[in-house]
Design a binder for these strands. Structure first.
Lengths: 226, 226
DNA sequence: TCAGTTATAATAGTATTACTATCATTTCTG
DNA sequence: CAGAAATGATAGTAATACTATTATAACTGA
């Protein structure tokens, strides 16, 4: 399979990091570093040291670290949508699509060799811990106007469309799917850190249990009338 | 009705702010200021100016601004649990309790004169925008060991108990309720800032629509077997 | 009432962060 | 090989999140 890349919203970056060696290094190493340090402790100075470059050089690719996070999370949403498409495009029944979709959303994320310089396992952990910080800011409205949340919205719209196919009378398809997408991350976080808020554990079958939980949540709601 | 206060976990503060005039002012004005500026732009220097005091004085009440946020959010959970108790303690049927519970969770929050120096409307907006930041940190585990998330966990446990009463076979009561509690905030945020991720609007009946959405989500899941 | 404790104010200072600016050097391109 | 573009090296700034010190005001018990 040829090496693929995603075309991300150009407002996310100043210079496209996928097109240069330094840019690729920034992406690759920032994933590892944010995973290790957390987004608050992460900064461009530490990143520059790690890749033997300078702060100033990194600022030529990303306006600030928030945009870099938006870029990484945007990349994740594209990747997830790509995987969902891959596993659903041979299916006709929208209900079956939703089932497969839940499996892909809930599954353990593993390194995907289709995409070089992105460690999907680490990126998944970043999304779990930092996703909400992408939009819980004072600039959410201007960021949104620039289309920086396009990946999330696109995926939500697609899946919500299948919900409506299954039951056109269901009044909350988008709310249901955004809830599903966020919940899939939150419950994993709770399992790891606040276990009394969930019934997902830390065992190896946690992803199966998550799938079951999300499955009942989604499918029972969709079938309801009210 | 006499003026009430909540007994919050003492690890949240260095000196109990409810016991002194300055402490009460810190609480009261920080709610307004965080609501206006957002938590990132908020700091103790600005707060000190606003209440004609000094940074150093505020640091004698709260170790840092994160603890202050935890305090405010903890207060909110106590308040919500108090309201839920108020409206459910005369009910015997757990299913009925869940219905009322959803109404209280989804309702528009209005100023509650039972509690002086807390503006519940502003606090509710803070919780919507900043709640996730209380636990999405690197110190979540040590904060949790100190019991700083006690309010959230206590409420989740109580409602999850009613879920189990309704259907002892349902395997995810805590996951379902934590999802419900978070979703109730997230969907309001989306309605205000990322409307394509929800079907709740900004109209006056938004809280009724939210209640309906959460109702189907909860009640259909609880009744399911799998 | 006054000595002693405690709370607050006033002020200063520090390390880190999130940038911006400038200029030199390397690399890539027609 | 000239010129442009990308990167590196270095410096500097305003703001943040504190800590420390000393002075003053307020309350408390004997």
């Amino acid at each position: 399979m040829p090496a693929l890349t995603f075309k991300l919203n150009p407002h996310l970056y100043l210079r496209d990091p996928q097109h240069t060696e330094l840019g690729q290094k920034i992406i690759q190493v920032s994933v590892d570093l944010i995973d290790r340090l957390g987004f608050e402790q992460f900064n461009f100075k530490k990143l520059a040291e790690e890749i033997d470059s300078t702060e100033a050089s990194i600022y030529r690719y990303f306006e600030n670290k928030h945009r870099l996070l938006l870029y990484l999370v945007g990349w994740y949403w594209n990747w997830l949508e790509y995987r969902i498409d891959m596993f659903t495009n041979n299916l006709a029944d929208p209900k079956e699509k939703l089932r497969v979709c839940i499996r892909v959303i809930a599954e353990e994320k593993q390194y995907d060799s289709t995409f070089e310089f992105i460690n999907e396992e680490a990126l998944y952990r970043i999304v779990i811990a930092e996703l909400d910080k992408t939009y819980l800011t004072k600039q959410v409205d201007s960021d949104n106007k620039e289309g920086l949340f396009g990946g999330f919205k696109s995926l939500c719209k697609k899946i919500a469309g299948w919900v409506t196919e299954v039951n056109p009378a269901y009044p909350f398809p988008h709310a249901l799917i955004s809830t599903l997408l966020l919940t899939s991350k939150q419950q994993i976080f709770f399992a790891d850190h606040l276990p009394s808020l969930t019934n997902i554990g830390i065992e190896t079958d946690r992803y199966n249990r998550l799938e079951t939980f999300l499955g009942t949540l989604l499918l029972n709601s969709v079938q309801s009338k009210s």
